[in-house]
Amino acid sequence: MIGLGPYVALGAVLFAIGAYGALTRHNPIAVLMCIEMMLNAANINFVAFSSFGGSIDGQIFVIFSLVVAACEAATGLALVLGVYRNRDIQEIGDMHLLKW
């Protein structure tokens, strides 16, 4: 029988990988994927806490947060496309019109 600990640890590892990627990757779409990974780390936590804590609220929360994550991905891809159409940009570092 696996306890609560490993699930929370998995969530923490996923969150850390996502955060590292989001802060170091140079491609906006890769950053978007890393953010999704961080959201899913939180989802794992919710499901784990829910199944070990006995209340169903956490699993309901995950359904909502999945929907929100899908909306966020759609919005984000549209914004990335908007930038790509107007400018020849490969990396986030190329976005330096707005600075200081």
Binding site: V8, G11, F15, M38, A41, A42, N43, N45, F46, A48, F49, S50, G53, D57, G58, F61
Partner: peptide, 8 residues
């Protein structure tokens, strides 16, 4: 992620 701990 913070909320998930608050819930837990």
């Amino acid at each position: 992620y913070g909320m998930s701990f608050l819930y837990g």
